[in-house]
Amino acid sequence: MEERMMYFIRRRNKLLVPIIILVFLFYFMLPLSLIFLPDVMNQTSFIPGITWAWLYAFLQIPMTWTVGWIYHIKAKKFDEQIEKWEREESV
């Protein structure tokens, strides 16, 4: 039973671990780019009137919402898998 559970958890984490690493990278690249690339960040981005610094800071908000949504979908699937497996076990 435990091996099967660990298999499910590992499979889920294979996806979630890279996502959280990417979130950290995306988040910490903002202060780092402001520290090390201030000139680039102060240039106007592809949206007229918006600099890269503002665009990057704004993007953190939809990033948070999107990543939360991805987690929710994945976690729901994981719960269903576990429930299905539990039902099979109890039969």
Binding site: Y27, L30, A57, G68
Partner: peptide, 21 residues
């Protein structure tokens, strides 16, 4: 200006850490 807004970003992204970990 801009730097004040950065505070908010840290507060918000912290919820991803809560959710995932």
């Amino acid at each position: 200006g801009y730097d004040g807004f950065l505070y908010s970003i840290g507060f918000l992204v912290s919820y991803i850490v809560v959710l995932f970990l």
